[in-house]
């Protein structure tokens, strides 16, 4: 664990500062349509991905930037993607919502809440049936627990004993809905009903996340089947940056302040020497200065290419206007 102290700090700090820089670009109009900031939840992405191998697979959701960065995607190409530039990791076709990076095993971010976990089950089924020991981690939130397709796929994952990690980032709210008002019983109880081991873990501490995920990864890799990990976490910022304008009042300041006392960047930063932390911080500032510059300087796609990539076979559909 000690050997990962600095890398874990580096990841949570990178995600935090990446999101802060991205919010600046939302405010200045470089990123159009806003983002779902990951600020506050960084320990989950950092700890989970530190337990994975490079060739393991991740399925993400609308709050995906942290997952991509923790899985090793290049910050400048993620930032360019958010800004809709052709140098983006998905050639400017994913935006903030749908980041994928197949070189890093990130199979995509799908926003039909909870449904990405079923795509993950399919990848995990194929991975195991093809005789590999690769595992698939699917990130979902507490809101996903009430999607029928998620419950369907928990049944399939257990029945087929696939190497899947169902990572629940329980940040207490599905947009404005408190988890207690939307979810009967318990999240781990639902896993147990399907015969899937479930654990509730502190999601503000990267090392606690890493420890719990490592155990689940070992079980999956050795043929022991899926696990569900519920990480108790909190987003310090908005559900989406549109909240800056509409000022929703679904949480108290006291509650936000209470969770901020366990800021994962501070938690992990306190575990490494000041000198190392300052060095990492500076390095990240340089990386992100480059990323922002790269995003701003990169070209936008040519409107003539608006139908590119629609079909993997290159099929070009009929235009919308025929002269």
């Amino acid at each position: 664990m000690d050997v990962l102290r600095e890398p874990l700090y580096r990841t949570v700090r990178l995600i935090r500062r990446f999101e802060e820089r991205a919010i600046e670009l939302v405010r200045t109009g470089v990123i159009v349509g806003g983002i779902h900031p990951y600020i506050g939840q960084e320990a989950v992405a950092a700890g989970v991905c530190a337990a994975l191998r490079d060739d393991d697979i991740v399925l993400s959701n609308h709050r995906n930037h942290g997952h991509a960065l923790a899985k090793g995607s290049e910050p400048r190409r993620v930032m360019a993607e958010l800004a809709g530039r052709i140098t983006g990791i998905d050639n400017g076709r994913a935006g903030s919502l749908h980041i994928s990076d197949y070189e890093r095993g990130l199979y995509g971010a799908t926003i039909t809440v909870g449904h990405g976990a079923a795509i993950a089950t399919g990848a995990a089924w194929a991975a195991s049936r093809d005789g590999t020991d690769r595992v698939v981690a699917s990130f979902i939130g507490d809101g996903a627990m009430n999607q029928g397709a998620l419950l369907e796929t928990m049944n399939l994952a257990s029945l087929w004993r696939v190497p899947q990690l169902i990572i629940v980032e329980n940040n207490l709210y599905a947009t404005t809905q408190p988890v207690g008002a939307s979810t009967a019983g318990s999240i781990t109880g639902r896993a147990e009903a399907f015969g899937i081991p479930g654990r509730t873990v502190d999601g503000m501490d990267p090392e606690a996340v890493l420890e719990a995920t490592t155990e689940a990864v070992q079980r999956a890799r050795s043929g022991g089947g899926p696990s569900l990990l519920e990480f108790m976490t909190y987003r310090f910022d908005a559900h989406h940056t549109f909240e800056y304008r509409v000022r929703l009042r679904y949480r108290t300041q006291e509650e936000i302040d209470h969770w901020r006392e366990r800021d994962p960047v501070v938690v992990q930063g306190s575990r490494i020497p000041d000198e190392a932390r300052e060095h990492i911080d500076q390095e990240i500032e340089d990386v992100l200065a480059d990323a922002v510059q790269f995003a701003q300087d990169s070209p936008k796609p040519d409107p003539a290419d608006a139908l590119e990539y629609l079909y993997a076979t290159g099929l070009r559909p009929r235009p919308g206007v025929v002269s």
Binding site: L59, I119, G122, T153
Partner: peptide
């Protein structure tokens, strides 16, 4: 779920 499982296996 099964239809999404097919998508996941196809991505693999």
């Amino acid at each position: 779920a099964v239809t999404n499982v097919a998508t996941g296996a196809a991505l693999w």
